[in-house]
Amino acid sequence: MDITTEVHPGKQTSELVLHGRFDAHEADLFRAAVEQALEDGHHNIRVHLANVEFVDSTALAELVRGMKRCRELRGDLVLVSPSDPVRVILELTKLDAAFDIA
């Protein structure tokens, strides 16, 4: 999986654009990207999932962890345009109700 981080000046928001399969092998990479964004003072993170075809349970747990970290800092982690399979997985696990999905 590749992660590209985009920052819009003045918005205090990090855009994490993911591409590929997000599974347990990629959890550390994602966590590092989230922590870097928070360290940079960006407490709002938008995770783009349009090009992610599969998320496993570890990836889902990592997304939840990131969301909780952001909310602790009065920000949020938003899922942007999840692909169809990822959206179905979010629904089946009932996590679609936990996240703000844009």
Binding site: L60, V88, E91
Partner: peptide, 12 residues
Amino acid sequence: WRIVPTIGAIAT
């Protein structure tokens, strides 16, 4: 730990 995401991917 693994089956629900797998079902989601296969079903879609």
